[in-house]
Amino acid sequence: MNVTLELNGETREVEVTPWKRLLDVLREDLRLTGTKEGCGEGECGACTVILDGEAVNSCLVAIGQCHGRQLTTVEGLAHGEVLHAVQRALVACGGAQCGICTPGIAMCASHVVDRGLLAGADDVTARAKVRELLAGNICRCTGYQLIVDAIIVAAREVTR
């Protein structure tokens, strides 16, 4: 099947079987390896991408379903060498350790921040919200503390 999608702002075409996982198409056919596989069952969130404006697990989407849709992967999150606020904050706050979950966390957090899902919340509420909204992304290195810090920093920056 010929699948055409808008990927990181560009129109891309791939010839693939429609049942192939979006994750595999990204990594194997399009050689965009920033999107990671941690479990293959929608548990860890390492494969998170933004599809039609929602954060989704790319391991649970069939490529056929992506025809004509808009997709952003971690490769499209920064503008060239200029990082997204979330990426910047993750670096500054020490929110990335081994880094394999980091692209997924950056994608989910950018969605949370860009959609204003933390807007107006005081610090305590915002931290609790981050913990709920990011619960689909497992990190085994950080204990989450410095990632929560980073997302709060990024949200404040984006709101300003």
């Binding site: 390896t33 596989e37 490769e75 980091t102 692209p103």
Partner: peptide, 23 residues
Amino acid sequence: ASVPRVDGFAKVTGRALYLDDLD
């Protein structure tokens, strides 16, 4: 000093190459 990690940029951009990412 809390110097930012040397590998931070590569990791937040997805450019760090883990084994399965190697061409």
